[in-house]
């Protein structure tokens, strides 16, 4: 899934203060691309990710995905867009504690257009044998892999990951990134990863460096490094 954005701006108003989270971002993301967004806190990465995923709308600017004008969609249409096209992965997993690993995945496959079998999604992230465990019975890495399985099970056009390894040690983090890369490879989903960790940038086709609500620099890797070979 591709994205095309022009002069995207986002202003948050809290009380009397205005926070300019995005100050005019132009971008093109190609289908199947692996993209890493780097930058300090408050530089606008998460805001952009939320807008790409239909969680939020830009204050001004243009954003399309294929034929779809994301800025023109109403709330129900944005929900539809997320439901059918977008997979999210967060730093803190956001699993439902009352559902087992498999049921967490089913939460998505219950409503998606053309989902894969939940068991297969768990298999892809290497958790087939832990499918009946509740989040409280899983380690942090395992929980994040369940979140990955949940995100890929709907066969999304794009996987949006906000600090997916932020709460994990490096070995565990690598396993999660491997799962994400496998999903990108096998389903062709565009993969966008936010991170503070410059080491992860090596797995991307391109790296966007954020500063003060703008893309300060775009870096293209000649070769993608597989997560297993990365260290940080």
């Amino acid at each position: 899934m591709n994205f095309h954005g022009e002069d995207l701006r986002k202003i948050y108003r809290t009380g009397e203060t205005e926070v300019h989270a995005l100050r005019g971002v132009d971008l093109d993301i190609e289908a199947g691309e692996v993209l890493v967004l780097l930058g300090p806190s408050g530089s606008g990465k998460s805001t952009l990710l939320n807008i790409l995923g239909g969680l939020d709308r830009p204050t001004s600017g243009l954003l399309t995905s294929g034929e779809l004008d994301l800025t023109a969609l109403d709330d129900a249409e944005l929900t539809r867009f997320r439901r059918d096209r977008v997979g999210f992965i967060f730093q803190f997993y956001n699993l439902i504690p009352s559902l087992t690993a498999e049921e967490n995945v089913r939460l998505v496959t219950d409503i998606a257009e053309s989902p894969m079998d939940p068991a297969r999604a768990l298999d892809l992230v290497g958790l087939a044998e832990r499918r009946d465990h509740y989040p409280a019975q899983l380690s942090g890495g395992e929980q994040q892999r369940v979140a990955v399985a949940r995100a890929i099970a709907k066969q999304p056009g794009v996987l949006l990951c906000d600090e997916p390894t932020g709460a994990l040690d490096s070995a565990t983090g690598v396993r999660v990134l491997e799962a994400l890369e496998a999903a990108n490879r096998e389903t062709g989903a565009t993969l966008v990863i936010i991170t503070h960790n410059a080491g992860i940038a090596a797995m991307a086709d391109r790296v966007f460096h954020f500063l003060d609500g703008r893309i300060a620099r775009i870096e293209r890797n000649a070769v993608r490094t597989s997560p297993g070979k990365m260290t940080w």
């Binding site: 995923g53 969680l55 929900t79 997320r82 059918d84 409503i111």
Partner: peptide, 9 residues
């Protein structure tokens, strides 16, 4: 989370 996953209100 459910809303993010694409559940309607």
């Amino acid at each position: 989370t459910m809303r993010v996953l694409g559940y309607h209100r």
